[in-house]
Each structure stands twice: as structure tokens, then as C-alpha cells.
């Protein structure tokens, strides 16, 4: 369990850097209809070991969110969203629990839990995350149509990136 901490810290920093250095630059708009954001930073929280205490999840999500907000000039929006995602993470994990339960040391990877589990886990949490993100960004459901479009398009591109990353980078913890 101890060696899990450096791995997670490293992944945390790595995902943060990739998000602000690479994917922040490729935000583009789709014919003025929807904005496509590559939102991969929830991975830092989602890939933490399954039995990580909730408090740790929430606090690291808060830190990550605020750090992202500094780069995105959107004080609090990423933080609020990521804290929410960290909170519902455990609910989704509980819903998807396999018949024989989780191991204490399980990390949510394809190798440990199988591709079906990883796909449903990541897609559910990511979709919720992106929807909440655009809702808070718009801050009013008057713009429901815009929120809906942005969510759909951003989800598709982000999920492809995240899923490919699961095959390329496979960590032990």
C-alpha cells in the first residue's frame, strides 16, 4: 500500500501537466455550435486505488481543481466539479461491484477488473463529470441545449483519449 502513494502522486502531477500543457491548447469550437474540451484530468482521481479514503479523494480533488482553475482562469469551477466527481466515484464503484467483491489493493485498471468494468466505470463518471462541469460553467439551465451539446461532443473526444491511455499506460498501483 505504501508504494501506491508515490505512484499516485506522480500520476496526479503527470495528468495535471498533460491537461494544462497539451489538452488545454486543443480546445476548439465545432462550427459555433458546441465547444470541444478535452477533459482528461478526472483520471487522476478516478484511477486512485478503490479503497482510498473518501477524505483523501475529496481533498486531492479540491487541490487538483484549484490548480487547474489557475490555468483556466475559472476560479472554482474545476474544483467544484472535481470534488463532486470524487464524491460520486465511490457510489459508482459500489454500483459496479463484481459478484465476488473487490480486493483491498485493487486499482481500477483493465488488468485487474477487465475491460468491461473499466469502460463502464470511466464512461459513467466522465459523463457525469463533464455534464456537471458545463452546467456549473453555464450556471443556469436556461442554456440547457448548449450544455447538452457541449457535454456530448466533449465526452466523445475525451473518452476516446482516456480509453486509449488505459491501454498504453498500465500501472501496477
Amino acid at each position: 500500500m505504501n508504494s501506491a502513494i508515490p505512484t499516485n502522486v506522480f500520476r496526479f502531477v503527470f495528468i495535471f501537466l498533460v491537461q494544462v500543457m497539451v489538452f488545454k491548447q486543443v480546445t476548439f469550437s465545432l462550427g459555433g455550435l458546441a465547444y470541444i474540451h478535452f477533459i482528461i484530468y478526472p483520471l487522476a482521481i478516478l484511477l486512485m486505488p478503490i479503497k482510498t479514503p473518501r477524505g483523501v479523494l475529496l481533498l486531492s480533488a479540491f487541490v487538483m481543481g484549484l490548480a487547474l482553475d489557475m490555468f483556466y482562469d475559472s476560479v472554482g469551477i474545476h474544483a467544484a466539479t472535481l470534488v463532486f466527481t470524487a464524491y460520486i466515484r465511490n457510489i459508482v464503484i459500489a454500483l459496479l461491484e463484481p459478484y465476488d467483491g473487490y480486493n483491498m489493493s485493487d486499482v481500477p485498471t483493465i488488468k485487474n477488473l477487465g475491460i468491461g468494468w473499466v469502460v463502464s466505470y470511466l464512461s459513467i463518471t466522465l459523463l457525469i463529470h463533464i455534464f456537471v462541469y458545463f452546467s456549473i460553467e453555464a450556471f443556469s439551465y436556461v442554456f440547457f441545449f448548449e450544455i447538452f451539446l457541449n457535454t456530448i461532443f466533449s465526452f466523445i473526444v475525451s473518452f476516446i483519449v482516456i480509453l486509449v491511455a488505459q491501454f498504453i499506460i498500465q500501472t501496477k498501483y
Binding site: P53, G65, S74, G76, A79, V83
Partner: peptide
């Protein structure tokens, strides 16, 4: 954890409302 969640969200929304013009 739940209380922490609520506290953090309140902090975030306070930040959002105070520092983002649109919101």
C-alpha cells in the same frame, strides 16, 4: 467525508460566485 464534501463544494461555489463575472 460527506461533511467534507459539502464544505468543499460550498467553498468552491463561494469562489465561483465571487471571482467569475458571468456566474
Amino acid at each position: 467525508a460527506h461533511i467534507l464534501f459539502i464544505i468543499l463544494e460550498v467553498v468552491c461555489f463561494a469562489l465561483i460566485i465571487n471571482y467569475n463575472k458571468t456566474q
